[in-house]
Write a protein that binds this DNA or RNA. Structure first.
Length: 599
RNA sequence: GGGGACGUGGUGUAGUGGUUAACACGUCGGCCUGUCAAGCCGAAGAUCGCGGGUUCGAUCCCCGUCGUUCCCGCCA
């Protein structure tokens, strides 16, 4: 090795030792007769001192050194002089007095400043990702990611899980997201698909008798990007035979708690993960992924509205349309314009308008356009139910249940953001369970699965598949953290007749099912064990634990919003003979793009 | 596919319908033996994303286009 010690580990106990360090110049401070260099390696930073008064060191070399040069230095670890310690540096009690300095490689001036926090446009960071990754923040994030993955592997290994790799080249299926396709050279006209998840394969591993499978699996989805969505991403994917729902929930909960405690920068809010039914989540938070960092729950006021003089709400109540509200603490001073902004926001989610009651911070009177329609008793009842006090703002919505929950759910999040309640200071997990098996009725009279078509209905609800499919609850479960869905899974269907019934309800013909899932259906006829599993979005979870606003910050080489790798410039055009091999030809916009590129 | 924001030296920003586009960091040179965001002195570095239009004159106003980003659609 070209070094005997790592920069970041030097402490008082090393004083007197002769050591060799190697790393990058984080910063250089030239005093004329003495030059200080902050030498950085993957372990941290050490200050090295080159003193022109010492004859055994070639001072002229130190004068040539610039930021990001790669150096090797040999010297003795000395205590810093009295009062010269640097408490901001882990190695700040000592410094290396250099007797030999060697430039291993110089560096051009860097386009981004490695020793400073990122301020530049993200596209520049992505173009020079290998420099951006030198930064402390990215080094930290990728270490958190490594620690999380290692924790998961160790945890599952101890519980008799084995990690099995599944193919990246697999089969396209029509439902779900758009597939990334890979043309086959050997089979003209045929394509592989990159897996959106190893879902089918892990179920087949259950049929194969492995009982406990997991994988840190790369998944691919050709959809438009978001802050927490990349074309390729990583899932902790897991499947268990003979497990019931709570077995999986309990184990994942234990694993998640352990992982957060071992690796997270942001602390866990509670070791109790509440289990909330889908219905309750929608009623109380207006979302199937409730952000539990704050309260501001949706409260039903329909009873009070029923007898009120406010005709819109009263007649809605008679039509079975609820009125619900949230209470934003301390927002009673909102101006007419603030309220107009909020109303516009509410309308984006289907609200026809936005009613409100504000308790004026000065007069302590209830004000707002609809206040006059309510008696003092009714207003008192509303205040009590909403737990509202002086200076608070109550936002009301009345419509069908779906709209009311969605509008107030979004307003709740918006008010939470405005009130600073969504700061990323703790991780608030909860389980959402008892999802409906089907989402909505399609125009052709068929049903859409709310998770995927292998999700099992709850045993007791199976008879309702014939009578009232919408009422059927499933064995699906999601793990939610701070309003993000971080995991999702289910107990699967393992019996062929039930699977066929579900496919019929979804509108899959026997032929279609046979063509796309024939291997699955056939496999299930050879003694498929009852099984279930879960997949965790690792990128999102690590981003939450690292306190980062998007998943690109916890991925080494992410793509930008247009699914482009700005560093390598991928995707790129390929040679004609490559296309010829694949029997693939350009068409439409691709022809124009190629012509343009050739000019 | 749609909407919003942004685009000015290497980087981050400021600015203006009119002579020489300002500041900080970085870079280069000089001074300096105890700094740690070192300091001081000096210098170089920008066709103001690209194309078109309005105008006597556009970095600024208008249109288009490209790029980046956030959101909706899409996606579990």
């Amino acid at each position: 090795m070209l070094k005997t010690h790592r920069c970041g580990i030097l402490r008082k106990e090393h004083i007197g030792q002769t050591v060799t360090l190697a790393g990058w110049v984080n910063r250089r401070r030239d005093m004329g007769g003495v030059i200080f260099i902050d030498l950085r390696d993957s372990s941290g930073i050490a200050q090295v001192v080159i003193d022109s008064g010492k004859t055994d060191v070639d001072f002229s070399i130190a004068e040539k050194v610039r930021n990001e040069f790669v150096l090797q230095v040999r010297g003795t670890v000395d205590p810093r002089m009295e009062g010269m310690e640097n408490p901001n540096l882990a190695t700040g009690a000592v410094e290396l007095t250099v007797s030999e300095i060697n430039i291993l490689n110089p560096s051009k001036p860097v386009p981004i400043q490695v020793d400073k926090e990122a301020t530049e446009d993200e596209s520049l960071r992505l173009k020079y990702r290998y420099l951006d990754l030198r930064r402390e923040r990215m080094q930290r994030n990728l270490r958190i990611r490594h620690a999380a993955i290692k924790y998961i592997r160790d945890f599952l290994d101890q519980r008799n899980f084995i990690e099995i790799e599944t193919p990246i080249l697999f089969k396209s299926t029509p439902e779900g997201a758009r597939d990334y396709l890979v043309p086959s050279r050997v089979h003209p006209g045929k394509f592989y698909a990159l897996p959106q998840s190893p879902q089918q394969l892990k179920q087949l591993l259950m049929v194969a008798g492995y009982e406990n499978y997991f994988q840190i699996a790369r998944c691919f989805r050709d959809e438009d990007q978001r802050a927490d969505r990349q074309p390729e991403f990583t899932q902790m994917d897991l499947e268990m035979s003979f497990a019931e729902r709570d077995d999986i929930l309990d184990m994942i909960e234990e694993m998640t708690i352990g992982m957060v405690e071992h690796t997270s920068v942001i602390p866990l809010a509670s070791k109790e993960f509440p289990r909330i039914s889908y219905r309750e989540a929608m009623e109380r938070y207006g979302s199937d992924r409730p952000d539990l960092r704050f309260g501001m729950e949706l409260i039903e006021l329909t009873d009070i509205m029923k007898d009120s003089a406010f005709k819109v709400f009263a007649s809605n109540a008679k039509d079975g349309k609820p009125t619900k509200a949230i209470c934003a603490k301390g927002c009673g001073h909102y101006s007419r314009k603030d309220m107009a902004d909020l109303e516009d926001y509410a309308k984006k989610f289907g609200a026809k308008g936005l009613a409100y009651l504000a308790i004026d911070p000065e007069t302590e009177q209830v004000k707002g356009p609809i206040a006059k329609f309510f008696s003092t008793e009714q207003l008192d009842a509303i205040m009590t139910k909403m737990d509202a006090g002086v200076g608070d703002l109550i936002l009301l919505s009345s419509d069908n249940k779906l709209v009311v929950n969605s509008v107030l759910g979004e307003l709740r999040l918006e008010m939470g953001r405005r009130l600073g309640l969504t700061e990323n200071t703790s991780l608030n997990f909860c389980w959402v369970i008892d999802f409906p098996l089907f989402e909505e009725e399609m125009s052709d009279g068929h049903y859409a699965p709310s998770h995927h078509m292998f999700t099992a209905p709850q045993r007791a609800h199976i008879p309702m598949l014939d009578t009232d499919p919408h009422a059927v609850l499933s064995e699906q479960y999601d793990l939610v953290c701070n309003g993000y869905e971080v995991s999702g899974g289910s107990i699967r269907i393992h019996e062929r007749p039930l699977q066929r019934k579900i496919m019929e309800l979804i509108g899959f013909s026997i032929e279609e099912a046979q063509d796309q899932f024939g291997h699955m259906l056939e496999a299930f006829e050879y003694g498929a064990p009852p099984h279930g599993g879960i997949a965790q979005g690792l990128d999102r979870l690590v981003a939450l634990m690292a306190g980062e606003p998007n998943i690109r910050e916890v991925m080494a080489f992410p793509k930008n919003q247009n699914a482009t790798d700005l560093m390598a410039d991928a995707p790129s055009f390929v040679a004609q003979h490559q296309l010829d091999d694949l029997n693939v030809a350009h068409k439409g916009a691709a022809i124009e793009a190629v012509e343009e590129a050739e000019q």
